[in-house]
Simulated scan of single mutants.
Amino acid sequence: MENETFYFTLYQDQGHLKYVYFITILLEYVAILFLNISIILTVIKEKSLHEPMYIFISCLSINALYGTTGLFPRLSIDLLSDSHAISRPACFTQIYVIYTYSISELTILAVMAYDRYVAICRPLHYHSVMTARATGLLMAAAAFWPFFWMAFVVYLAARLPLCGRAITRLYCSTWSVARLSCVSTAVNNAFGLFVASTSVFLPSGFILFTYVRILIVCKRSSAEVRGKALQTCLPHIVTFVTYSIALFCDVLLSRYELSPVMNVVALIFSVEFLVVPPVLNPLMYGLTLAEMRKKNPFLMQSPKISVTFK
């Protein structure tokens, strides 16, 4: 069982199109590396950006680099390979990387939402609440939670005896492996539901709660204060909405037998949350936040983008 090999079935019969896909994937990955590394280096270099909001933005970029590393190199190999095989250890490593990335994205967004909540709803207490120690603890908690729980999820999945080796996805996932099991996966499903509830729905609910509170406070404030507050929150809202929709659709569609057309839709959503946010996030934060735009040498020549609210 330790040397068992899985096979991806979706890479077959691509013909010469595989080279087009490969170049597209390569350009996408280079863009992700360039944009996110520029955000990280800018925050590290500029002392004026050593504030919780910008530190959390750099954490989001670090997580993007981590998650896409679990997908793009392997995806590039599979596109050009003739065997489309992946070893059992490599498969579960990919599962762990991609799933910890996906959960970390939500926990980091939850921490960012809390930061904006304190800044807008309790501005006089912001510096006493969001201290360097508190920022470090929030960063550690956002990282520790998904890495801890996903270790158990992957362990339970790795223990399942399997009666098949064909994976009908572009990468390994817990559900694609669990459906190959020779025995009941009730324990895995129950534990997976618990992890999903605490790691996906709980952060999402907290994010929604904080932004409802922020909107209530902004509604009572002056137009100038409301415009500044909403402008700093806009990138967070766009990031959360786009990521949540893609993740929800991927989870929902991956658990059912679908028609050929819906299979294409499911395939798109299965990689969308790993492809779009890592590019969209640094563009949103780098171009819409004035301080970030001015300090980032890679974006200094970009046209000024601003959003005002009346």
Rank of each mutant, 00 (worst) to 15 (best):
L137A: 03
W145P: 00
M130C: 14
L137V: 09
L180G: 06
G136L: 01
G136W: 09
C172N: 02
A113H: 13
F152E: 11
L156M: 14
F147S: 02
A134P: 03
R116Q: 09
R159K: 10
S176D: 15
F144K: 07
A166N: 13
T168S: 08
C121D: 09
A166F: 15
C163K: 03
S173F: 03
T131H: 00
F144Y: 14
Y117R: 03
C172E: 03
V154R: 13
V129F: 13
S181K: 13
R165G: 01
V154D: 07
L160D: 00
A143T: 08
F144S: 14
T131F: 06
M150D: 08
G136C: 14
A166M: 11
W149K: 03
F152C: 11
C163P: 01
V154Q: 13
D115Q: 14
R116S: 08
R165M: 06
V153K: 11
V153R: 04
F148I: 02
Y171L: 04
A134D: 07
C182F: 06
P161Q: 03
I167T: 00
A113N: 15
L156R: 05
T174E: 15
P146K: 15
L180E: 07
G136A: 06
R179K: 11
H125A: 07
F144L: 15
T174R: 12
H125K: 06
A132G: 13
A166S: 10
R122P: 10
A141H: 12
L170H: 11
S176H: 11
A166K: 12
P146R: 13
A141K: 14
R116T: 01
C121S: 12
M139F: 05
A158G: 02
F152Y: 11
